[in-house]
Design a protein around this nucleic acid. Structure first.
Lengths: 256, 256
DNA sequence: GGCGGCTATTGGTTAGACCATACTTCCACC
DNA sequence: GGTGGAAGTATGGTCTAACCAATAGCCGCC
């Protein structure tokens, strides 16, 4: 049975005030466990795919009860650092934080923080989407471009049928972001679309012709990328996004 | 004397606490509670500063044990949606997700995801920092600019004393980001600096002259902003960041 | 009137138990 | 001999009941 490490916050023995002015009994045991495990992951001592000991094991090692260990696991899980499986061979497995989970956090922040306005979100999106244009122009492969054109074709077909949705538009932008072949950018940009969608869906119904113009712009953008024409691609995308932005502004103005 | 537990998929509880909180049933009860509360927050039925009922109260309302409620609170807390205080008048208070907490998530992702390379992180940072330059040039007030110049002065003084740190450089960039007066951008950009710091600290010692050049570039950037000269500011910042980027690349190449 | 201790409220933790789930093993049956 | 299913087992999910620890507010004493 391993003793709990005399680490930063393993306590349970601060009742005796033997040494004066001890650092106050630090926060929560569960948080201390989280910190330890997080550090192990950061140090590379625990790597993706590895399995932590069972909860009951961890209890012994940390010298705490199962509830405490479980709370720590919940926190780690919420942070996307581990996933927990049930059943035999179950347990907590180290996972590389998924962009989805992080995206959820960003999305929460964008949508729930009252200090962040829709205009700001749109502006941030503009910065990102315009910023990647040069990178996309440089790195997009012929297949990538063919894929984008195929999306435009599908969009046109959907418009003809009247089944075009804002999701399809968002998909296009997400795909473009992916062509930067940069995981960090992809992760940052993803969360911007869901809030945008909910914010724009209503407007879409009000202006059904919108989609048609949008897809035309998409296509012009793809052509510019195909020609590796950065200024043109930037210009097209900028106009496209700013048209969207103006609608968001109208909407947020109308709401207030 | 445990009462017979309903199966995990049993629903339609007869508990009907018809106010805000419904009994749960799902794979993880704690997750279901999280979902409910998260939704209440998103809907605005719970707003920042409000206090949730006590844990023991929530047990009754959700029809689960305290352990389960507590796990739910840990998850919400990890997501930055509530903060929990102890003692009388303690409890879970709704908080607007802080950019710090979200930043931690992004930072985890950037540093721990093996699929994200330092080069990608640097590139993403470049996109963001360059993208905001026009906005900063437009919105920076005279006070803002004076503040930046003051930072440069301090940096020069620190260099003269040999106490200049990478943190001071990071501070400069974070301050610049703040001048965009856009919370979303600020939130996105913050997390890029800590990983950058750890990645660059070693290099700093190897090239102590670095800081001097960096500060000089900072100052030239501020002057360009003062003159509202977007192309110039962009050019300066780009050169500055790319010099940093080249060092990151060297470093990551040396490591492999 | 102010200070110090009492008390109630509330989160933090423990211990032991039971259930649900999923993998493993192995045996019976074909 | 192979195969399907039953029993075994490891593990997470939840419950109960209790106690500890921190804090705010009140009350009485000086």
């Amino acid at each position: 049975m391993n003793r709990p490490r005399p680490g930063p916050a393993t306590n349970t023995a601060h009742r005796g005030t033997d040494d004066l002015f001890n650092p106050v009994s630090l926060a929560r045991a569960s948080q201390a466990i989280v910190d330890q495990i997080r550090e192990l992951i950061q140090d590379g001592q625990l790597t993706a795919g590895e399995r932590l000991p069972s909860e009951r094991d961890l209890c012994d090692r940390f010298g705490v009860s199962r509830v405490t260990v479980r709370e720590a696991l919940r926190i780690l899980e919420a942070g996307g650092l581990v996933t927990v499986k049930v059943g035999a061979r179950g347990g907590a497995y180290i996972t590389t934080p998924s962009s989805d989970r992080i995206g959820r956090g960003i999305e929460d922040y964008l949508t729930m923080s009252p200090s962040i306005t829709a205009v700001e979100v749109t502006e941030a999106r503009l910065v990102l989407e315009l910023g990647i244009v040069p990178i996309v122009c440089e790195r997009a492969t012929e297949e990538d471009i063919a894929g984008l054109l195929a999306m435009c074709d599908e969009a046109d077909a959907a418009i003809a049928e009247g089944t075009y949705t804002m999701e399809m538009s968002a998909d296009f932008h997400i795909t473009v972001a992916r062509l930067a072949h940069n995981g960090a950018i992809e992760m940052l940009l993803g969360p911007f679309h869901r809030p945008m969608l909910t914010s724009l869906k209503a407007a879409r119904e009000a202006a059904p012709a919108m989609g048609k113009v949008g897809v035309k712009e998409h296509r012009r953008f793809v052509h510019a990328v195909r020609d590796r024409d950065v200024p043109k691609a930037t210009e097209v995308m900028k106009a496209h996004l700013e048209r969207t932005a103006s609608r968001v502004q109208q909407r947020s103005r109308a709401k207030s």
